[in-house]
C-alpha cells in the first residue's frame, strides 16, 4: 500500500517534472529563432549540412567522368533514389535548406533595417571582401539555379523514372538536358554563385560555432577555399563536357 502510494506520487512528480522541464527547455531553445546569435547558429548548422551534402553529391556526379555510358552513375543514382536511409536524410536536408533560406532572407532584411541612413563615402574592399558582404545576393543566384535544377533532375529521379535500371535513366536525362546551351550557361552561373557563397560560408560557419584560433583557423580557411573552388568546378564541368559531347 505504502509503495503503491509512493509510486503514484512519484509518477505524478515525474509528470510535473517532465512538463515543467520541457517548457523550460523550449523557452531556452527559442533563442535559435529570436536572438541574433541563435539565428546565426541556425545558418551555420544548416550551412555545414548543405556543404556535407554537396560533397556527396559531387562525388556521385564525378562518376560520369568514368565515361562508361553512365553505368556507374546510374547505379549510384538508383541507390540514392530508393535507399530508405538516404530518403530520410533527404527530408532532414530539405528542412535544413528551407531553414537556411528563410533565416537567410529574414537576416538580410532585418540587418538592412539597422542602418537607415546609408554612407556616402565608399570604402570598397578596404576592410572586407565583396562576396562576404553579398551572401544574400549570391544565395539568391544559387536558389534560382536550384529551383531549375530540382525540376530538371530531382523531380525526374524521384517521381518519373521507374524503379530499376533501364533505358529511362538519370544519365540519359542529363544528356538530354545539357543539349540545351541555355541550361549549360545557367548551370555554370549557378556554380559561380556557389563558389563565392562557399568562399565566405565555409569559414564563416566555423567562426559562428565559436571555432577560431590562430593555430588552426588558417587551415580551416584553406580547406574552405579549396572546397569552394574544386567542388563547383567539378559540378560546372559536367554540363559543359556533356554539351560538347565528350561524355556520352
Amino acid at each position: 500500500m505504502f509503495y503503491t502510494n509512493g509510486n503514484a506520487f512519484q509518477l505524478l512528480n515525474l509528470q510535473t517534472f517532465i512538463l515543467t522541464k520541457r517548457y523550460k527547455y523550449m523557452g531556452v531553445l527559442s533563442f535559435l529563432f529570436s536572438s541574433s546569435l541563435g539565428r546565426k547558429l541556425i545558418m551555420a548548422v544548416t550551412g555545414i549540412s548543405l556543404i556535407a551534402f554537396l560533397l556527396v553529391h559531387c562525388l556521385i556526379n564525378a562518376t560520369v567522368f568514368f565515361n562508361d555510358g553512365g553505368k556507374t552513375f546510374n547505379e549510384a543514382a538508383e541507390f540514392m533514389a530508393h535507399n530508405w536511409f538516404i530518403r530520410t536524410t533527404e527530408i532532414l536536408l530539405f528542412v535544413g535548406l528551407l531553414l537556411h533560406i528563410i533565416q537567410g532572407i529574414y537576416l538580410v532584411f532585418d540587418n538592412r533595417k539597422k542602418r537607415s541612413a546609408k554612407y556616402s563615402g565608399k570604402a570598397g574592399n578596404a576592410n572586407s571582401t565583396w562576396y562576404s558582404r553579398s551572401m544574400g545576393l549570391l544565395g539568391s543566384i544559387v536558389l534560382i539555379f536550384l529551383v531549375l535544377h530540382l525540376k530538371h533532375f530531382w523531380v525526374v529521379s524521384r517521381f518519373e523514372i521507374p524503379h530499376g535500371l533501364n533505358d529511362e535513366n538519370l544519365f540519359a536525362e542529363m544528356v538530354a538536358v545539357f543539349e540545351n546551351p541555355i541550361a549549360v550557361i545557367v548551370y555554370v552561373i549557378g556554380c559561380f554563385g556557389l563558389t563565392y557563397h562557399l568562399m565566405h560560408g565555409f569559414g564563416s560557419a566555423f567562426q559562428t560555432f565559436g571555432i577560431n584560433h590562430k593555430s588552426y583557423t588558417p587551415f580551416i580557411n584553406s580547406v574552405g577555399m579549396a572546397f569552394s573552388f574544386v567542388i563547383p568546378l567539378i559540378f560546372a564541368a559536367i554540363p559543359v563536357v556533356m554539351h560538347l559531347g565528350l561524355i556520352k
Binding site: S35, S36, L37, R39, K40, L107, D110, N111, K114, R115, A126, N127, S128, T129, S132, R133, M135, H200, G203, S204, Q207, T208
Partner: peptide, 20 residues
C-alpha cells in the same frame, strides 16, 4: 547579448570589417 539585440544592433555575418 539580449541588450545588444534590444538596442537595435544587427547580426554578425563574419565579414571581418569590424576587426579590420
Amino acid at each position: 547579448v539580449n541588450q545588444m539585440d534590444a538596442e537595435g544592433f544587427g547580426a554578425c555575418t563574419n565579414t571581418g570589417a569590424c576587426a579590420a
